[in-house]
Amino acid sequence: MEHILRPIYQERASQPETLGVILVTKREEIMSITDTFDTVLLIIVKEADMPIFTKHYLHEDQKMAMHVITEELLNKRLNVGLDRRIVDWIFHGKVIFDRNEYLCNLRLKLQEFPFFGRKIKTGIQFSKLIRRYLEGKEFFNRGNYFDSYHHVVDSLHHLARLSVIDNGLYPEVTVWSQVKKIEPSIYKLYEELVMSTESLEKRLELLFLAIEFLINSKTDDGAQHILETMLLKDTWTIQELHNHHDLRYYSKDLEVFVEFLIDKGYIIVEPKESKSDSIYHRHYKVDRDFVISQYNGEK
């Protein structure tokens, strides 16, 4: 199939903004990795008018897909960690064009999983865990147990990813098989949720207690990235936090995460005067003394 697609990827490779081209072939045991297409071309570019551009091709009985993605969007998907296909393609695809060893270095980066990479991924997964836990608890308290169940499953997935990240591994591929080996207690929670003979209400009640305990035990690690970022300046508006080049990866979960850290004492709200006498701007700063005491074990 590579020779059929050669004119397509050679045209792209000749363009100066193209950083790399990967060819992915369907594997029968996991056809979903290529969305059932026989072949996928992943083309990474420095910049483009559209962050992602897709075309489908047909050759005899073979179907092929081409995805052109910008470096910025690729980094976002890798940092947020919710697209296991991209990670699989980078790890297992065939590199057929690599400008200045861009893909080679990217693979090394993913394999080595540097400490900063772990911190930002931990923070993003932890913020998602907080939102799912809080929303699930609201549904539970209103008696909407099926909606609550959905959120608890997602919470456990984020806990699973956190445990894999904490062990220096990449969590996008076969997460639960990884978790079963490295943190069986979280795998056991998942089993209890889906296999227990207890009533759904009772299962959820027990899971919320367990998840709350795990959240409290993981808050220091989960908050490390956002707190270190916020320590770069004294106070922040919420828009400044959203605009920060790393914190923007938290997306819609950023604000609920900040409120959670305010409740836990890590962040202080600092009112600032506005044009109205009765309304104040809400600015945020890290409680340095509290954070130091937390990380020194004075709890």
Rank of each mutant, 00 (worst) to 15 (best):
A48I: 15
L204C: 05
Y190S: 10
L231Q: 15
I226C: 12
R142I: 07
I69D: 02
Y57T: 03
D88E: 13
I30C: 12
Q294S: 08
V175N: 11
K299Y: 06
E2K: 09
A223E: 09
H151K: 08
H158M: 09
C104V: 09
K137S: 02
E212K: 06
D35A: 12
I238K: 12
Y170R: 11
R248A: 02
S199D: 15
S148D: 01
I90M: 02
I30G: 15
S177E: 13
A210H: 13
Y249K: 05
K137D: 04
P16K: 10
E259M: 00
F115M: 03
S217G: 15
Y145Q: 02
N167F: 09
R282Q: 09
I226S: 03
H92Q: 11
V45G: 05
L108C: 09
L110F: 07
V80C: 07
M50H: 14
A48F: 07
E201F: 04
I86Q: 01
G20T: 00
D253W: 00
Y145F: 03
D253E: 10
I96E: 01
L241G: 02
P51A: 06
K76A: 15
E172N: 10
D287E: 05
L82Y: 14
L214Q: 11
G168T: 02
Q239F: 02
R203V: 05
Q15W: 07
I215H: 00
V286K: 06
K137L: 10
S127P: 04
H245F: 10
G20V: 01
S32Q: 04
Y280Q: 07
N216P: 14
Y145L: 11
P171R: 03
E255G: 05
T36N: 13
K26L: 04
S196L: 08
Y266G: 01
T229Q: 09
R288Q: 12
R99F: 12
